[in-house]
Design a protein around this nucleic acid. Structure first.
Lengths: 198, 198
DNA sequence: TTGTGTATATTCACTGGTTAGTATACATAC
DNA sequence: GTATGTATACTAACCAGTGAATATACACAA
């Protein structure tokens, strides 16, 4: 049944997403992913050439939705940039309190595959974080902040730090603490040598 | 050969440390650890009741040495607290440039075992980070900083964020960026409502 | 000094289960 | 009648944990 041909691959990626994210990549077998998608392993291997390929597809599918969510949280918040960025952390804290939350899929994958530095999935994760960093950098540059890249990286460090710390302690309040730090850093940067305005 | 009885267990933990850190917990088999320690799997299971037990011992062995290193980097640096804390990040960046560096063992373990929230190894990791946080908090409290716990957590977030980001991008300069952010946050906190002095 | 028992420490060989990936055949659509 | 897509059944390797036996050190009795 070739059918529209896309739903199958899509279903596999969704099953992979659900299982890899909640159980870990090495913990989940290809058979389990196939079963969750409602088909056989052999069919899965028709659509993906290897488990590594499937892992890469799993992360690639998380890239745009994640970025869109951050942008949405930013733009739907009233106020200046410091407050809008802090809102991302507050929303993230709310997500992190959900029992099914298990940290950042990109970071957990890079931790699990730390012995395979060139792995495609790690490249996808790195590109994802670079996109976020660049979006922040552009946002800060619009504000006339002196070194927008440095500030963007500092915010990214706080964000990824909160993913790691909250996963370890299962205490989402660290995310709000990170948000405060982010706001402080942005405010400090905006006070200094402004060229445009805030 | 009972012998002093300690070197064997010690050798096993060191072998586990080397393999789990560089390859990942789920990637390394108990047989591999035993082989690296120069004995049989059955002997390993005489000293440890399960692989989970061995994983916990692996992290427990990293706890004190890691903390001692941070304290050493702090105390051997000349200057005020902001500079001394920044020195931790600079030293960490130097470590991270070593090819065998693979991030923070505690964080990587919590990422790999994210589906087992109560795992003993995760508890050990959480306790380790709490010790570091508390040492920072005490240090900041001595400086008369208004909310030393909050500041300590913000520094911790930057530290763990740099572990995660540097592992993903393999770019240790993020650690120096995190150090600058830490210094900024500490300086900002010290400027405000000081009670003692710096 | 010699024999004997017991706790400690180690090995060999095995079990039962899992896993990534494949050879082959079958079905459907156009 | 060929492309696409799916399933059955298999391989070869790996892996956590165990059963049974053995070796050593040492305490104590003869």
């Amino acid at each position: 049944m070739p059918r529209p041909s896309e739903p199958t691959r899509e279903r596999i990626v969704q099953a992979a997403n659900s299982l890899f994210y909640s159980e870990g990549i090495r913990r989940v077998s290809v058979d389990e992913v196939a079963a969750k998608a409602g088909l056989t392993k052999r069919t899965l291997y028709y659509h993906f050439k290897s488990k590594d390929d499937l892992v890469a597809a799993y992360l690639a599918a998380r890239d745009q939705p994640n970025l869109a969510l951050f942008r949405k949280w930013f733009s739907e918040t009233e106020g200046g940039v410091p407050v809008k960025v802090e809102a991302i952390f507050k929303n993230l804290a709310r997500s992190a309190r959900h029992p099914k939350w298990k940290g950042c899929g990109f970071l957990r994958t890079s931790a699990e595959l730390a012995n395979m530095p060139g792995h495609p999935a790690i490249r996808i994760g790195a590109a994802h974080k670079k996109k976020f960093e660049d979006w922040l950098r552009a946002t800060f540059a619009e504000q006339g902040i002196a070194d927008p890249l440095k500030l963007a990286r500092q915010i990214l460090l706080l964000l990824d730090g909160s993913f790691a710390v909250v996963l370890l302690h299962r205490d989402a309040s660290y995310m709000e603490t990170a948000g405060e730090a982010a706001r402080t850093l942005i405010e400090t940067a905006m006070m200094k040598p402004r060229r445009k305005r805030g």
